[in-house]
Design a protein around this nucleic acid. Sequence first.
DNA 1: CGAAGTTACATGCACATGCATTCAATGTCC
DNA 2: GGACATTGAATGCATGTGCATGTAACTTCG
Lengths: 135, 135
Amino acid sequence: MSDAGEEAIVRRWRDLLACYSTVSCALDRALQDAHGIGMSEFEALDRLVDATCEQRRMHDLAGDMYLSQSALSRTVARLERAGLVERTMCADDRRAISVTLTEAGRERHAQARRTQRAVLAEHLVPEPVPVRANA
Amino acid sequence: MSDAGEEAIVRRWRDLLACYSTVSCALDRALQDAHGIGMSEFEALDRLVDATCEQRRMHDLAGDMYLSQSALSRTVARLERAGLVERTMCADDRRAISVTLTEAGRERHAQARRTQRAVLAEHLVPEPVPVRANA
DNA sequence: CGAAGTTACATGCACATGCATTCAATGTCC
DNA sequence: GGACATTGAATGCATGTGCATGTAACTTCG
């Protein structure tokens, strides 16, 4: 790798860091202020809405999110405490937990989604970009 | 904003999140394992090396990094405890603190930088990208 | 069936972070 | 000069995170 290439990559990383910091900070703050949930909570609700059945097992949910298993466990616990999801035992595998959106969860997500879109629109431009070389 | 535009932005955000999570996690782990410092510590050392005098006031340092004032204060405290920087009072403003690289700090940074470059090269492609629309 | 290994989730713990506050030094205005 | 506001940095506190571990349920293999 040439020095020029290295420097380009470092610049790229700094841009990425700057962009992520700005957006995630603004997003977290906006969601917290307007809806009382953080970014992780919103992401979790979002995955549940995306799921056709609005019901996912913890393990599947964890696979979609950039959170450790323990962090997800606590995130879902917070959502349950807030009445936005319900945790129920899986009939077919009694180790697993099914997470289901409640009506309140659906509504909260719908409202928070508007905030999210607004914040993202304010900070990002739409062109899609292949940022990652390797997973 | 059209729905298509909104979706493009959300896709963009997800890509950004994915990329940031992957890279920052790998980077933090590599730096911690190989050199005993985290990403924030490395960033701070990096700013100090960039500075021609290798000496910055806390306030200036904070401006360059995506850390709160208190987080920077503790980051520098960790670096000082590790013997990588020194904190000295500013003569001209006795509220301010000057942060200076030690010889050990310079060496540690030089080594850590190789690790950083390697991790970034592994995960990022070099093309620069205008990710942010607004600060 | 029964023992050993694996999987799904929860939890104790350590730690980094942000917010609010504190404290000292500096600046401002009269 | 003296009162009040502002600034630079440190710290108490609450919180979110990851790692290691614990526990129950499932699986495999004899």
